[in-house]
Amino acid sequence: MLKRILLTITWPALILIALTTTGMAAPPVSVQIEPNLVSIGAMYNGAEVVATGEIPSDAQVIVQVTGDREDIVLSEKGKAFGLLWMNTGEVTLYGAPTVYMLYLSETDSSKGSGNAHWRDVGVGFESLRKQITLKSSNGKADLDFDEFLKLKQKEGLYAIHKDALIYGKEEGAIRPFSCKMFMPPRMHQGTYEVTAIVIEDGKVLKKVTEQLKIKRAGLTQFMTRLALNHGTLYGVMACLVALMAGLFMGLVFKGGKGAH
């Protein structure tokens, strides 16, 4: 009888505990991006994309934007004839993302980008250095990676944006966040990953990824296809339009001398 009573009490209690712990193990992590499709039209000058989401109240989040990984072959400058700077070697980077951008909150921004904290969670340029294999004709891999970073940062395709992520007012155990991201015009057509990396006690708790598509549209799409697939036709068309424009201007100004 006593055994029966104990079982009757214990089972619901165990189920209740299990339900509670399951709820705690799966924190309410979510991320949405708006818009998730960016069109490169004739007037395109980059685009703003907003990432919003929710994380547990005692966690932090970093938003990471990455492009496809590819092998990049770059020319390396050196001194030729002991006088002129020109391309003298070659550097190949295997598995380098076309785009690598991080968006940090004010708290995370103070931690820098190269310290142990970021390495532990696998983000930042120091972590990226370990993910990319580099083959250099001069054997100075570390130096070449730094130069590669400079090149990508100058293009605006690799960046760490500090104080770019804002936390909202906590509601119970949930902490909302939002992040305004600018996609530079140099980001070409392709699919990019926007990942919310949730960190708790210095460790990655969860990663949630959404896809961002950038696509050529309208006139830009037409011109690129024509230039790449029908180069001769494109060249003839470009000449004809230039001829017509020149004739038109000549008529407007009643035939000037023009440029040589």
Binding site: A42, M223, A227, L228, Y234, A242, A245, G256, A259
Partner: peptide, 27 residues
């Protein structure tokens, strides 16, 4: 122009048109 367009695909027609508008007027 035709050879660069067919061989190297480096002719940017949009850039050329903007320059053309400016240069013909300026000339």
């Amino acid at each position: 122009t035709i050879m660069q367009a067919s061989t190297n695909h480096t002719v940017d027609f949009v850039l050329a048109v903007i320059l053309l508008a400016g240069s013909t007027l300026g000339a």
